[in-house]
Design a protein around this nucleic acid. Structure first.
Lengths: 145, 145
DNA sequence: ATTCAAGTGGGGAAAAGTGGGGAGAAGTGG
DNA sequence: CCACTTCTCCCCACTTTTCCCCACTTGAAT
C-alpha cells in the first residue's frame, strides 16, 4: 500500500563527468538522499530510503551460514552507494557501478514500481524487443490483467 | 461491482504535440489523474486510479527473484505513465507508448467497461472487420450470453 | 439565429535536461 | 611537509521540451 510507484521510461545521457539527470517526475518520491546499487539483469537499482530499509530487512533474514547467501549479500551491499543529487537533479554514478551496468553515453531510466532502474540504452532496447514478443503470454500467466 | 462502465467508440486526433482529447463522456469517471499503459493487442489501456491500484497490488505479490516476473513487471511499468489532462481535457501520449500502439494522426478511443482503450485508426478498423465476422461465434464461446 | 459544449491548433512562458568552468578537497610523489 | 595533479562538487549558461493559456471551428440544443 505504502511507498512510491514509479512508472515510465526516460532516455537521458551520462555526461563526461559521470552524471545523469533523474527524471523530474521521480525526484519528489526519491527524496534528498537515496541508494544506488547493482541490480539484477545488468542494470542498476535505485531505491528511496524506505524501500532500501525494507530490502535490508529482508537481507537480514537470510541465514549467514549459507555460502551463496553470504556471497550475494557481500556483492550486493559492497556495490551500493548513497547518492545525493545536485541542484540540477543529477547524480554521479560511481565507476564500479557504471562498469557493472556497462553504461555508455545514453541510458534509459525506468520506473518499476517501488524502485527505479538505470540501463544502458542498447542493453534495454535489446531486452525490450524480446519482451514485446512474450508480453501477451506473460500478461495472461503472471497477472490476471 | 464498483468502478466505471465505459462504453462507446470515438474518433479523435493526435496533434503534432502528441496530445489527444479524451471523450467528454469519459472525463468524470477518469478523474483528474489516471494511468495509461501498454495493453494487449497493440493498443493502449487507460485505467482509472482504482483499477490501476488493483493491478499494482497484483504485481507486488510477484517475487522479484523470478526472472520472467521481473522482466514482465519492468516492461509493463516502464510502459506506463501517469496522465493529467489539461484544461481542454487532453493528455499527452509519451513517445514510447505512441510507438507501441503505432499511433498516427487518427486514433479511436473505445469504452470497454472498466477501462478505456486507445487504438490507431487503421489498426482498429481492421481488427473490427475481423470481429464483425466472428461476433456471433465469439458470443457463444463467452459464457452466459 | 444564438448559445454552448466539445474538439483542435498553436504561441509563449516556464521547467527540464545538458554542458562546462572553476574553487576546493583529496590523493600522490618528492 | 610541501608541491603537484586529480577528482569532486557547486554554480552559471544554453537548448529543448513541456505545459498553460487563448482562440478558432463545428455541431447540437434552445
Amino acid at each position: 500500500m505504502s511507498g512510491a510507484n514509479f512508472v515510465g521510461e526516460y532516455l537521458h545521457t551520462l555526461d563526461t563527468k559521470g552524471r545523469v539527470a533523474l527524471p523530474a517526475k521521480f525526484r519528489e518520491a526519491l527524496g534528498p538522499k537515496f541508494i544506488i546499487a547493482r541490480g539484477l539483469d545488468k542494470c542498476l537499482f535505485v531505491y528511496p530510503n524506505e524501500e532500501w530499509n525494507q530490502v535490508m530487512e529482508k537481507l537480514k533474514t537470510i541465514p549467514i551460514s549459507k555460502k551463496d547467501a553470504r556471497h550475494f549479500t557481500r556483492y550486493f551491499l559492497s556495490g551500493a552507494t548513497e547518492a545525493e543529487p545536485d541542484k540540477q537533479g543529477r547524480v554521479v554514478i560511481p565507476q564500479n557501478l557504471r562498469d557493472y551496468a556497462r553504461l555508455n553515453k545514453d541510458v534509459f531510466i525506468l520506473g518499476v514500481g517501488s524502485r527505479i532502474e538505470i540501463w544502458d540504452k542498447d542493453a534495454w532496447e535489446e531486452t525490450k524487443i524480446g519482451l514485446e514478443a512474450e508480453f501477451s503470454v506473460l500478461a495472461e500467466s503472471v497477472a490476471g490483467i
